[in-house]
Design a protein around this nucleic acid. Sequence first.
DNA 1: CTATTATACATAAGACACTAAGGTATTAGA
DNA 2: TCTAATACCTTAGTGTCTTATGTATAATAG
Lengths: 116, 116
Amino acid sequence: MTPPPMTLLKGTLDVLILKTLGWGPSHGYAISRWIQQCTGEELQVEEGALYPALRRLEEKGLLDSAWKTSATGREAKVYTLTAAGRRQLQTELSAWSRYVSAMTRALEARPTGAIA
Amino acid sequence: MTPPPMTLLKGTLDVLILKTLGWGPSHGYAISRWIQQCTGEELQVEEGALYPALRRLEEKGLLDSAWKTSATGREAKVYTLTAAGRRQLQTELSAWSRYVSAMTRALEARPTGAIA
DNA sequence: CTATTATACATAAGACACTAAGGTATTAGA
DNA sequence: TCTAATACCTTAGTGTCTTATGTATAATAG
């Protein structure tokens, strides 16, 4: 069976949201579904983390939001990446990749001399 | 020039410490040097994060500590991985790698259908 | 027809690990 | 002799997360 979803490392949610919105406008609930789905249920976005994060990003000017009523008659707040959000996405993507590289170096490195 | 060191993602320091101590006993200051060095100065461990982390890990029984005086006459608290610490290292290594995989899937995935 | 699940939003309380900034003390080198 | 490097520690503040709770509607199952 699949292991339980991992808790998010603090600081990685923003880039996940930005990336998801990079595909086009969407609303909170759908964003969280998408992240969960495309990570094979490994990453789970709690609502208590998601909605505040969306507000934060909007306040920073990285997202725009608008209430929309879907074809089914359901209300949802649809978020769209701003130009600044798109730039921020690129920045955070490369920061993440740099971080992973650094971690990989540390976790796979073999000591050349003494650690002390 | 090299970009400024990145701040740590909360939750990644423990595995870095455990990994470093996997090479053999060491003390706080040296651990922080080692991490900085082998990541090419990309990861910087603040002392205000390091020392509390070492205490945490010791309280969890993952590390043992003992004051030692080096050949130079300098005092240092030398930490050693316990058996539990070694097991925890393996656990956290695979958790990290699982996390990176999940993030990679999310950050490189292309939507099959609509995001909404 | 009714009860439950899924959709969709929001917030509050609390935990927790980090940054920034300060402090002590010794040794080595300029 | 003064500074940089070594080596430890702590506190205050911040920010992001988890957990729990609350509201409301639509779709589905029994």
